[in-house]
């Protein structure tokens, strides 16, 4: 095989999309009832739920900051939900989560009729992203529209972790 074609073959092999199961980032399909399931699973634990999407410019800036925050705050549950208006692109979603240090977060992706999924979470939410929910142990929820200030997340987390002691 000529070196040039060998190089092409190698490049093709390298660029082929990896099978989903080989990716370390698990993406759960977020469908009807997933929100209730998620709330139940995190009940009693301080949780940050972050909604984002691959085509959202401000999300690209915020996501790595959230990744760094997660590393520094193991006592806070971090959940991300890819919530673009149309069903998202799994490969692009995984890649962005991995680049942002969020592979090990609990990651979901909208799967189905987005209007209905949003309605289950908050009927008044029209789908603007990014959007972050801060949920206390007691279930009290605070919504941050748009990019969150990481300093605010740190303050909130400090209060949550202090309340445990």
């Amino acid at each position: 095989m000529r070196p040039q074609f060998l190089a092409i073959a190698l490049l093709l092999a390298l660029l082929m999309p990896a099978p989903a199961q080989d990716s370390e980032t698990q993406l759960k399909p977020f469908g009807r009832g997933s929100w209730q399931e998620l709330m139940k699973a995190h009940a009693g634990r301080p949780t940050i739920v972050h909604f984002w999407g691959v085509t959202c410019g401000p999300c690209k800036v915020e996501l790595p900051l959230l990744g760094a925050f997660m590393k520094d705050h193991p006592g806070i549950d971090i959940v991300t939900i890819s919530a673009d208006f149309v069903p998202n692109l799994p490969a692009a979603t995984r890649a962005m989560l991995e680049r942002s240090g969020l592979s090990l977060a609990e990651n979901w992706m909208f799967d189905g009729f987005a209007d209905r999924l949003r309605f289950e979470i908050d009927p008044t939410w029209q789908g603007d992203i990014p959007r972050t929910l801060l949920i206390t142990r007691e279930g009290k929820m605070t919504t941050i529209e748009g990019s969150a200030e990481i300093a605010d997340l740190k303050q909130w987390s400090a209060r949550q972790l202090a309340a445990r002691n």
């Binding site: 040039q4 190089a7 092409i8 490049l11 149309v86 069903p87 799994p90 490969a91």
Partner: peptide, 24 residues
Amino acid sequence: PLAAATFLLWQGGALAQMQHQHGA
């Protein structure tokens, strides 16, 4: 040829993703 193969592959991947998206 390498650049062309890369472009075709990227387009292919993009289209595969797009079709998934449209499928839903």
